Structures are given as structure tokens and as C-alpha cells.
Simulated assay, not measured.
Amino acid sequence: MIEALQFDFMRNALIAGVLVSIACGIIGTFVVINRIVFISGGIAHAAYGGIGLGYFFKFSPVLGAVIFSILAALGMGIVQRQTRQRADTIIGVMWAIGMAVGIILVDLTEGYKADLMSYLFGSILAVSSNDLSIMLGLDIIIIALAALFYKELLAISFDETFATVANVPVNTIYLTLMCMIALTVVMMMRVVGLIMVIALLTMPAAIGGQFVKDMRKMMVLASILGMFFTTVGLWLSYSLNLTSGATIILVAGAVYLLSVAVQPLLRRIQPKRAKMD
């Protein structure tokens, strides 16, 4: 891995992994606790419509993804909270419409779309300095929003009824969370692609939640785990000549399965320690 760092693209990839891991640690924790994992997947796939929009109208596909994913996130959040429709139905509809719009717009766009697949499957090795600047800016926005509305986000995550009684603007905070998920999805699409966003967003937080219960600690642990997964995945992909995004996800998946497997053993050990104390 040290040898690989002599290349600019590897250094950029490593920095991108760190920046994305910070956002995943924070937002992934809220996603897992609120049990809205598939909403993040729906937003991710709907974001493809924005990529098609960018190609068709000749502006940055990343900017298109930001706009489209935020609109999709707000749409999912509003419809879910104000209608009786099932959440999975809403997500499926948004998911399908976003993907369909993106595909049609790309079909209608003249010329060769060289890097189109990188948005679907990720291309962390192709992350540029401009991409890093965008990721840093999105990280700052996400961290600022999480810090500013931490108590409100905590309230709606654990007891929405109490939050409503306490005059917390539940709907507004929920929609803010949706927008934060959308921004995180856009950050991650260059690393693992829109297809695998849901995995990297949720697995570090899910692992962290098995070992710590405090939300702040869970965010920190999830961020550290995300950095570990991206670094090890990059090293393996470089050493074995594998696709980086898929390798990162496989590393994360292996650790998640291992953490699930050791949980029964840890539950047996803890009572014995308590008796000894």
C-alpha cells in the first residue's frame, strides 16, 4: 500500500475514503436507528435521474445528482409522513422513476458517455481533486447539520411521540435528515457507486450498534470502521487487481457477518464477567 501512495490517484482515493467514511458514520447511524435503510437505497437509485439530467443538459452530473436526490428524498419523506401509503411502495416508485428518467435522458444524449458506469458501480480510483473538494464541502454541511440538530434528531430517532409533545418540529427535522442522506449518497456514488451505496452506508453503523449504544460513540466507531473498510478494500483491489468499490463492500460485508457470528459468544461471556465482578 505504501508503494501505491506514490500515485496521485491512490492518494486521492484514500482521502475520498476518509471523507466518505465520516459522512457514512454520522448519517448511517441515523439510518440504522430509524430503520430507514431502504430509503437510502431508493434515494441512491433515484439520483441516477439527476446524472441523466446533467448529461442531457450539459452540466455536471454530480450537481444533477445532488438536485435530483434531494428532490427524491423530500418527495419520499413528505409522501411517507402525510399519506397512508406503504413506505416500501413509495420508495419503489421513486426508485423506478428516477432510474427510468436517467436512462431515457442518457439515451437521448448525443455522444459517448465514457464515465457513465462509474456512477453506477463506483470508481474511487478516478476521484479528482475537484471531487475531493465537493466531498469536503458536503462533509462540512453534514457535520454542521448533525451538530446543530443533534438533540432533535436524537428525539425523533428514539421517541417521536415525546418529540412531538416537546414541540420539536418533527416533520421538518425528518425532512432535514432525508436531505442529509441524499448528500451522503452523492458523496458515496464516486466511491462504491449508486448500486452499492446502501451497503457502505449501513454496514459500519450496524456493526457499531452491536458494540456501543451511545449514539455519538456509534457514529465515531462507524466512521472508523468505514475508514478501515475503504483502506483495506483499496489495498486488496490494488494488490489483486480487483474492482475497488466491490472489494470495499466485500470487506465490509465479511466484517459484518463476523460481528454477527461473535455476538452469541459475547453474550455468554458478559454474564460470566458480571458474576465474577
Rank of each mutant, 00 (worst) to 15 (best):
A114F: 13
V93E: 00
M99Y: 09
M196T: 07
K213F: 11
F7A: 12
M215R: 11
A96L: 08
L125C: 10
G226P: 04
D214A: 14
I248H: 06
L154A: 03
A23G: 02
S237G: 04
W95I: 07
N12C: 05
L200F: 12
F121Q: 06
V232A: 13
I269P: 04
Y112F: 15
L201G: 06
Q263Y: 04
L19G: 11
I141V: 15
L74N: 09
N34E: 12
L175D: 07
L250C: 11
R190K: 15
V165S: 09
G17K: 01
F121N: 08
A100M: 07
L74K: 09
A261T: 08
N34R: 15
E152K: 06
G193P: 10
L14D: 00
S157Y: 09
F38E: 08
M135D: 06
S118Y: 11
T230M: 00
T89S: 14
T89P: 02
I36K: 12
A65S: 14
L236M: 13
P61K: 03
L225W: 02
M117I: 13
D131P: 05
A222Q: 07
I207T: 08
A146I: 05
V31C: 03
L177I: 05
R84Y: 05
V197A: 09
L125Q: 12
A254C: 14
L194K: 10
R273P: 00
G208P: 04
I249K: 10
I207F: 03
M215L: 13
W95P: 05
S123M: 10
C24W: 02
T164C: 01
Q270E: 11
V191M: 12
Y174D: 04
S118H: 13
I134H: 00
G122I: 13
L148K: 08
I181H: 02
V20E: 00
V262P: 08
M203L: 15
L265I: 15
I67S: 08
A274N: 09
Q80P: 02
L136P: 04
I141R: 06
L53Q: 01
V251A: 09
T89G: 02
G28T: 03
A147W: 07
V32L: 01
P271C: 09
L145G: 09
M99T: 11
L257V: 13
I173W: 01
A254T: 15
S60T: 07
M178P: 06
M76H: 02
N130Q: 14
G50V: 06
M76D: 01
F229R: 03
G64K: 04
G245M: 08
L153K: 04
I103E: 04
V186C: 12
M99S: 07
L221C: 09
K213P: 00
T231N: 01
Y256T: 01
V260G: 01
T83Q: 05
V32W: 00
S21V: 02
S157K: 11
I269Q: 12
S129T: 11
G111T: 01
L234T: 00
G233R: 01
D88I: 07
C24Y: 00
